[in-house]
Amino acid sequence: MNFIAWIIVVCEAAFWAVIIAGLTTRYLFKQKKLGLLLLALTPVIDLILIVITGIDLAGGATATQAHALAAVYIGVSISFGKSMIQWADERFLYHVVKQRPKPEKKYGMDYAKHYFAGWLRHVAAYLIGATVLAGLIFWIEAPSRTEALSGMLKIWSLVLGIDLLIAMSNFVWPKKARV
């Protein structure tokens, strides 16, 4: 595994560690401001990742899938970050603090609308990540060194299209509750 791949792993681990620390500080230690501060550090992790990726490429590295995944990670983290924190918050309150009922699962049209809202967040993640990928391609100005970045744009475009089909299928064939 190359350097950037390890940085992505470290950033992902740091993202969840900061969320867990923020929720623990907020609910178990009753330090709401400190907990919020810790949760607010998640975008800093994204910034660190993109800076390290840019420095590596500017230093002459040929882009790999790991470099491309750094851009995907940033887009997903920014777009889904708040909803991921909310998801973790609800489960933390239910499983650890025992102060909230079990989070409800969605079915039918509620699920379809929820999934479609997630697809819209996916579009936002795509736009952010694609902008980062295009910016890196433009900045490096060496197509032979940035093929992995442009390849990721193609793959992600396909994934986004498939995700739209899945989102639309939920309206045609709504998810049913298990009996």
Rank of each mutant, 00 (worst) to 15 (best):
K154V: 07
S77D: 01
K30Q: 11
F80P: 01
Y126T: 08
C11M: 09
W156M: 07
L36A: 13
A71Y: 03
A148P: 06
I20G: 02
K106R: 14
W87A: 09
K105G: 09
P143G: 10
I162N: 10
T42S: 07
I85Y: 02
V132P: 06
A88P: 03
L47R: 00
L127W: 08
D110V: 11
F171M: 05
V123G: 08
E12F: 02
Y126K: 03
T131I: 03
M168A: 14
T42L: 09
K106H: 12
G81M: 02
A61T: 08
G108F: 01
K98Q: 15
I48L: 11
A112W: 09
P101S: 04
Y115W: 10
G161M: 09
V96G: 11
I155D: 15
L49P: 04
A14C: 07
G22R: 00
G118C: 03
D46F: 03
L28R: 06
A167R: 04
H114R: 07
E104H: 09
M152Q: 13
N170Y: 15
A125I: 02
V10P: 04
K32D: 13
V96D: 12
I7S: 01
T62V: 12
I55R: 15
A167I: 11
H67F: 02
D163C: 01
F116L: 10
A63M: 08
N170D: 07
L47K: 00
Y107I: 00
K32H: 14
A61V: 04
A125E: 00
V179G: 15
I128S: 05
D163R: 02
K105E: 12
L164A: 11
I74K: 01
T62W: 05
A134M: 15
H95I: 00
K175W: 07
V159Y: 12
L28V: 15
D89R: 04
V123M: 15
Q99M: 11
K32V: 06
I85Q: 12
S157K: 14
H122C: 10
A71H: 02
I78N: 09
G75E: 05
L36I: 00
I162P: 11
T62Y: 08
A14K: 00
A5G: 13
E90M: 12
G135H: 10
P103N: 05
L136G: 01
Y94G: 06
A68C: 07
L127R: 03
H114I: 01
A13T: 14
G60L: 09
G75S: 03
F3H: 10
T64G: 06
K113I: 03
G60E: 05
W6K: 13
T62G: 13
K30V: 12
I128R: 07
I19T: 05
E104W: 04
V9W: 08
A13H: 09
V18W: 12
K98V: 07
H114E: 07
K30C: 08
V132H: 11
L153E: 14
I166K: 08
W6Y: 10
L39M: 02
L136K: 01
Q86M: 09
D89K: 06
M168Q: 07
A17Q: 07
K102I: 00
I52P: 02
H67P: 01
L57G: 08
L49N: 00
D163S: 13
L34N: 04
Q86L: 12
Y73F: 14
G22K: 00
L133G: 05
L28G: 00
A21E: 05
W87M: 13
G108N: 00
V132A: 14
Q65C: 10
P101E: 05
A40P: 13
V123Q: 07
